[in-house]
Design a protein around this nucleic acid. Structure first.
Lengths: 195, 195
DNA sequence: GTCTATAGGCAGATAGAC
DNA sequence: GTCTATCTGCCTATAGAC
């Protein structure tokens, strides 16, 4: 398909897809190279050709996830609509993650934080920083177009939104339903968008 | 000290204390019998005298944690004050957990949920059910004494509170500060208690 | 109750053939 | 790129002496 040499092979991408799902469902300490190898139909040894070690795999996992999330946020911005509409779209991303039976990758890694190698820890923090930065800009925009109202600083409100959504997914999964997340999203939208 | 035969030895309690801290910091798949044995100054084999296996240890861990939590909630009720005061006291419990550098035990186990043996899963759900039941009663009391106001059902509001607090702890830990939790608690109290 | 000794398995990782 | 073979270490768990 590509006539130039591939940058990061399809195989590596397929491995990341599997690892991503495993981490989001089982945590970073809840899966092994053997699990990935079995799903890929290759040996554990072959995985080391694509990723030096589990820590390396973890880093690249977070980097890709953060990039994709950033892209999704850019898409929301490009989609137009009010700041309130964009907040709704933001919440919908979390709902999709839950419906897929997963935690947010970095929400899960936040739980595993104490056991992660340093580079992965830094990457997790970067994810949340970017998330919050986007939300702060959104909230400031919402004050301008009068579609969002809230007390306190945009930064504090952004933290609240992330914490509420991450917590909603966390608590929802044992119940196997979206009830908790849906209730939390309704309340967030009511609080910020008045709807 | 006890003239009758002890029911669950001091040793077992000490093991549970260590295991509890390890699970709250590292997750159920992030520690081993070897970690506990090292801290206890005994061998791994000796641990099996007190707890048949790791799954058994996990069950009794959750059972004790749930009992203690229930006791704390009963103490809050016994302390008197308005429903708003009790909500403040409830939030303070989560803050203490975070200050200790820990996740809520069952919040952490909710992340590990997919990897847990069935009895542990059931116990985690029971914890959240009891938590929510207490909050529902609190919220209904708050409507009566007019110290708490909220839209929607008490059940939905209770879910929101638990999700917000669990998520706040989850997101706070990578930052090593209580800023996120404090912001979330302020907003919760503002929303429900109007202060 | 706690120990030593050990089983049996799985973890992440490496060397080197193809 | 993927394999076979292997390493070392850690995991949970058990048997049986003290």
């Amino acid at each position: 398909m590509a006539k130039t040499r591939e940058r990061s092979s399809d195989t590596a991408a397929a491995i990341l897809d599997i690892a991503e799902r495993l981490v989001q469902r089982r945590g970073f300490n809840g899966f092994s190279y053997a699990d990935i190898a079995a799903e890929m139909g290759m040996t554990k040894a072959s995985l080391h050709y694509h990723f030096v070690g589990k820590a390396d795999l973890g880093e690249r996992l977070i980097a890709r996830y953060t990039d994709r999330f950033d892209t999704a946020l850019v898409d929301i911005d490009a989609g137009g609509g009010s700041a309130a509409d964009k907040l709704r779209a933001y919440c919908a991303i979390y709902r999709e993650v839950l419906v897929a039976g997963r935690m947010c990758l970095c929400g899960m890694l936040a739980a595993d934080y104490d056991t992660l190698p340093e580079p992965m820890r830094d990457a997790v923090v970067t994810f949340f920083d970017r998330n919050q930065a986007w939300l702060v800009a959104l909230l400031e925009g919402g004050q301008l177009d009068r579609s969002l109202t809230f007390g306190g600083t945009p930064a504090a409100a952004a933290r609240e939104i992330v914490a509420a959504l991450e917590g909603a997914i966390l608590v929802s999964r044992p119940y196997g339903s979206t009830d908790v997340l849906d209730a939390v999203v309704d309340r967030l939208l009511e609080e910020f968008a008045g709807s």
